[in-house]
Design a protein around this nucleic acid. Sequence first.
DNA 1: GAGCACTGC
Length: 736
Amino acid sequence: MAADNNNSTGLKYIIKKKQKAKRNVHPFQRDTKTKKVSKVIRFDDSDKDHLVSVERLKGENSLTYKSLKNRASDLLKVRKALPVYHHKREIMSYIESNPVTVLIGETGSGKSTQIPQFILEQLYDKKKHGSIAVTQPRRVAAINLATRVSQEHGCKLGDQVGYSVRFDNTTTAKTRLKYLTDGMLLRELMMNRDLKEYNVVIIDEAHERTVLTDLILGFLKSLIKGSRPDLRIIVMSATLQAEKFSEFFNNAPILFVEGRKFDVTQYYLKAPTDDIVDAVIRCCIQINQGEQLGDILCFLPGQEEIDKAVTIMEKIAKYVSDETPVPLIVPYPLYAALPPMQQVLVFAPIKGFKRKVIFSTNIAETSVTISGVKFVVDSGLRKVKVWRHQLGLATLLTVPISQASAMQRSGRAGRESEGKSFRLYCESDYLKLPEQSEPEIARSDVTSPVLMLKRYGINDLVNWSWFENPGKEAIVMGLQELYELGALDTRGKITKRGEQMALLPLQPHLSSVLIKASEIGCLSQVIDIVSCLSVDNLLLNPSPEERDEVNERRLSLCNAGKRYGDLIMLKELFDIYFYELGKGQDSNSERNDWCKGLCISSRGFKNVIRVRDQLRVYCKRLFSSIDEENEEVRKIGEDRDEISKILKCFLTGFINNTAIGMPDRSYRTVSTGEPISVHPSSMLFLNKSCPGIMYTEYVFTTKGYARNVSRIELSWLQEIVTSGTAVAKQKIASSK
DNA sequence: GAGCACTGC
C-alpha cells in the first residue's frame, strides 16, 4: 500500500462547513405551555476533565480539617468562575417547585459536580433531613465525582460526601450526598422500597439508556405517584431525548446547560467504501501526511478488525516515514479483552516526531478518554449483542451506529483543542442513520429485571411504568424462565427461592445454581466457579502467535477440565491461584507471572476473589451452610462423583442450555434442535466424545457457538428433569 | 478455529 492514495477507493474528502461536535439544542428550545422553561447557561469549564486521580487523593486522606477547608476555599474560586454559579438560583427554583426536572447538558458541563452541591446547600439552609443520591452508569465515574466533590465541599470522603459502588462503600451515617452506581441504587430499592433516606434522587447520564437506568426511571415514576410524592427527581442527560424524559414524567420542565467544547471540523467520504480496515488505514496515512501533529483515534467495530489494522499499520508505518518526511505512526489496539498491561500503553504520551494511532472499539466512545487526540476516524460501525427471546440465544451483530453515537465519537477530537473528524461514509448515509441507538433493554434478556420487579411486588408486569417497555414477548419469556428456575409459582408469585435469588448479585440462572449447591452440599466449590464466571474477560485471548502454546499450558494444568470442560477447568485454575500460589513472600509477583503465562487477567482474578468473598457472606446469611473448616478439602480433585455433583448443580440452572451429541459428532440443542458448535476457546473444542454438553452462553456470530462448555451424561438430563418442573419435563420429552 | 460495552445489599 502506498502513501499516494487518491485512487479508486474514493478516499477524497469534501470539506464540510465547520460545525460543533455537539448537537444544536434548538429542537428543544421552543417554549410551549407544557415546557415551562428553556434556559441556556454556558459553562466555561467541564466537570470531569478536572477530576484528580483517585490514587493521589486516597493518599491525602490524612489531611487536617483546616487544610481541607483551605483547599475547598481555593476550589470555590474556580467554581464561582463557572457561569452556572450565576444561574444557581434559577436552577434551584425550578428544582424546588417541580417534582421532576430534566436537566440537559453535555458530559463535562459541570452539572454532575455542581447541581448536587447546590441542593446539598439548600438542605443545610432549610435544616432538612435526608440525603441526595446521584447515580452513574460506571463505577469509576461515581468514585471520581465523589472524590472531587468532597474536596470542593471541604470534607473527607465519606463524611458529608461519599460514594457507594460494589465492593467499595465510603458512605457513613454523616453522608448527605452519595454518588452511586445505578446497580447500587436498584439494590437499595430492593431493600428499602420507598428510598426513604433520600430527599432527592439524581439520575445522571440517563441518555446512555442502560437497562439499569431505565429500570430506575420506572421505579421512580411509580414512587412519586405512590408512596413518595415528596421525592424530588432530576434526570440529567446529554442534549438528545430530553422530550422523552419530560413526557415520561408528566411533561417535566427541561433546563439546558451548555458545555464548552472545541470546534471539530467534519469530513465525509465522497463514495462509500467496502473494505473498512483498508479505508481506515488510508485515512490515517493521509492525516499523517497533511495534518499537524496530534494523535488519531479510530473507531472500528471489533477485535478482529482492530488486530488486522494494527498488523497492517505496523508493517507500513516505518516504510512511509522513511520515504517521506512525516511523523512515524505508532499503532495501538484498544478493546476490553486486551490484557490491562497493553491497555495502559494507550494513555502514555508519545515523544519525538511520532503520532499515536489508536484503533479502538466503542470502549473509547464513553468509558475511556485518551488525551492528545486531535483526529477521529470513524468507521460508522459497532458490534451489538441482540437477545433472541424465543431461542435463548444472543447474536453478535455488526451494525451502523446512530447519529448520536457518530457525534459522540467526533466529539472525542475536540476535548483539548480544535480537531477534525473523518467519517468513512457519505453524508447522505449519515443523514439516514437513526437519531438514537436502540435502548439496551429492547434487545436484552429481561429475566433479571423481571425478577427484580416481582421481588418488588409488581404483579402486572406488562403494564408497569416501564420507561421503555421491552415488549410482552420478552416479559413472558422472562416469567417462564423464572418459573422453570423455581423463582415463581404457577400463579406467577415469587417463591422463597425466588426471594433468595433476587438478593444474590448474580444472574438468576447462576443464583439458582448456588441455591441448589447449598441444598446438596457443594456450595463452596460452586461459589468458586460462579465467581470466575461472573468476572468478564478473566481468560484473555492470547495473540495468534502464542495461542497454541497458551492452550497447551492450560490443558496440561487442568486434568479434570480436559475431560469435563470449562467449569471444572475454572475451578482447577482457581485452586492453583488461591491455594498453591501466593503463600510466599513474593506472592503477588508469583501470581502475576502465573497469570501472564496462561494469559489470564490477574486483575480479573483479584475480582474473582472479591466476588467470592461477597457471595460467601451472602450465602452464609441466606442459607447458613458454609463450612468454615476443612477449607483445604474444597479443592477439586479428579473424583468423578464430586465432579458429577457439581455439574448437576449447574444443570438445574442451565437445563435449557444443553445439546446432545449426534452420530456425526456435531451437537444439536435440546430445546430447539438447532445445530450448535463448541466455541474454539473451550477446553472441549477438540474433544469429540461427549454424549451431551451444557453451556452457560449460546452466542451466534458466524454460527451458533456454545461457550463455557461442560460434558454431561444423557442420563443426567432425565434425572434433573424428574426432580424439576413440569415445563422442563415436557421440553425434554418433546425433544426426544 | 474465535472474543461490542457496562454493572450488582
